[in-house]
Design a protein around this nucleic acid. Structure first.
Length: 489
RNA sequence: CGGGGUAUAGCGUAGUCCGGUUAGCGCGCCUGCUUUGGGAGCAGGAGGUCGAGUGUUCGAAUCACUCUACCCCGACCA
């Protein structure tokens, strides 16, 4: 009973923390705000990486790697970019330590850097400084590059996966000859993210653009996918930015177009991070632990043998050997948990905590009857099935689980999306959580005031199929469309 | 950076107010036997510079001062 989670209903934040620790995904490290990602958590990240990486390559991108350190001066080149990141930068000032007879190891004051280095909070500056050298003609464009990297943002408060001082992510940085092409790229990558969120993470997302207040520092337009967590708070799960010519101008990246005229290059950047693991957890999991969508589960099927004697284990092993091969042939990852150091009940609880989608239990009784017990993690249902054709049945079940948890999350989101027309109803609804669709007069001032009074921000402005005019919830001024408000992570 | 709190074995904690033998308990860990279809039982065992430093005292986990780290609430944020 050592591994009980705080129930969600009692304290959602505590539940989340307990789960990350007890499912063995990550733990806090000796460095404030930085976590150790443990093998099981990292395996989930590797699955995400592999799928996203494939999608990026499918859309024509290549991977490259840029330095961790960025000269301080680079940051001052794009004004709003500096403003956005200045308050959360780690800075390298020295390059050597020395022994001090009194204080032990100290920073060698003689080893001060001429120019301090910033540990990258994002790589636009160093990348655009590099792109300058790569681009002369329209024939050099587009540049479609992604990098998998770690970045550092010195956050005041951190939470495992959701906000850590150092985090892993990917950042795409593209350069284009025209505005239209860059906008199309930013929109394309938003669709890639939405596709990944919905079809792999089984997490429904709203897509659209950010309000000016919430825009990325240096962007002309920020597109985002926005998900609703089980506690009614929104989570920004991925962003794609149309950067206009801001960085090209700041770093003087020009090209000669077909008409032999100098033009600044158009840019995009886009990223998702290990925060997605937090999103995954808070989309599907329950008081028994993690619930993973089959497409991202490091282990999709676990087989727990039930045995007293060595001979029984041998018989079971023989029985499941073919099944394991069949499943692997189908690309399904299987773990045969034949440890004799733990009892079946312990294993059941452990794999439940770790969110393995399908668990098979097989013991002497099953061997006699030619059956196997199949348990699914999402519904916690168990049934005894004939062993015949079991690999096909499991393959089918995994697909059903993937669909079911998406459907469940979708219903939850729809049940927690509200249309509100009065300020009183708005305040009340925001307090209770969920997405709130309301009219807004379009000004940053109003958004700011709403944030100050309710802590809610505009999460996303969705593209409008049918514009619905109305009056701003706060000022009563005319509004062209509803926007999505929520309290967020 | 403001406000509040905590620091005792791998983890969770009792003891601190009111100083006094060997710092107690649960989980986990190790050994043995019995167990194994939902987190096993019994028996034995190992494991502690009581966050760090200084002071008060015959004597400090306990009192005083200083420092450090972490947690919670705010402002900031993927």
């Amino acid at each position: 009973m050592a591994k009980e989670l705080t129930p969600q209903a009692e304290n959602y934040a505590q539940w989340y923390n307990d789960l990350v620790i007890k499912a063995d995904m990550a733990e806090n490290s000796a460095v404030r705000g930085s976590m150790v990602i443990k093998p099981y958590g990292y395996a989930i990240w590797e699955k995400m990486q592999a799928i996203l990486d494939g999608m990026f390559k499918e859309t024509g991108h290549e991977n490259a790697y840029f330095p961790l350190f960025i000269p301080k001066s680079f940051f001052s080149k794009e004004a709003s970019h500096v403003e956005g990141f200045a308050k959360e930068c780690a800075i390298v000032t020295h390059y050597r330590l020395k022994n001090d007879p009194e204080k032990g190891i100290i920073v060698d004051p003689d080893a001060k850097l001429e120019e301090e280095l910033i540990v990258r909070p994002t790589s636009e500056t160093i990348i655009w400084d590099t792109y300058r050298k790569w681009v002369q003609s329209y024939r050099d464009l587009p540049i479609l590059i992604n990098q998998w990297a770690n970045v550092v943002r010195w956050e005041m408060r951190t939470r495992l996966f959701l906000r850590t001082s150092e985090f892993l992510w990917q950042e795409g940085h593209t350069a284009h000859a025209t505005r239209q092409e860059a906008v199309a790229e930013a929109e394309q990558m938003l669709r890639v993210y939405a596709d990944f969120a919905e079809n792999f993470m089984a997490m429904p997302v709203l897509t659209g653009v950010k309000s000016p207040n919430e825009r990325f520092a240096g962007a002309v337009e920020t597109y985002c996918i926005e998900a609703l967590m089980q506690d009614g708070k929104a989570l920004q799960a991925g962003t794609s930015h149309f950067l206009g010519q801001n960085f090209a101008k700041a770093f003087d990246v020009k090209f000669v177009n077909k008409e032999n005229k100098q033009e600044y290059v158009w840019a995009t950047s886009w990223g998702v991070s290990t925060r997605l693991i937090g999103a995954l957890i808070m989309s599907h999991s329950d008081d028994n632990g993690l619930v993973l969508p089959p497409k991202l589960a490091p282990i999709q099927v676990v087989i727990v043998p039930i045995f007293r004697k060595e001979e029984e284990l041998i018989a079971i092993t023989e029985k499941v050997d073919g099944l394991i091969k069949d499943l692997k042939k189908k690309g399904i990852s299987v773990k045969f948990d034949n440890r004799d150091t733990h009892k079946p009940g312990y294993k059941f609880a452990e794999w439940e905590m770790k969110g393995v989608p399908v668990r098979l239990a097989i013991g002497p009784r099953d061997l006699e009857k030619g059956t196997v017990e199949v348990a699914r993690r999402d519904t916690l249902e168990k049934e005894v099935l004939q062993f015949i054709d079991i690999a096909d049945k499991i393959e089918n079940l995994l697909e059903r689980i993937q669909k079911n948890i998406y459907q469940k999350a979708l219903v939850f989101r729809d049940d927690n999306t509200f249309i509100v027309d009065t300020w009183e109803a708005f305040q009340d609804r925001i307090e209770k959580g969920g997405f709130v669709l309301a009219h807004w007069d379009g000004t940053p001032e109003t958004e700011q005031k709403i944030k100050e009074e309710t802590k809610a921000t505009i999460r996303v402005i969705q593209p409008t199929a049918k514009p619905e005019t109305g009056k701003c919830i706060y000022t009563g001024k005319p509004s062209p469309q509803r926007v999505v408000f929520a309290k967020s992570y």
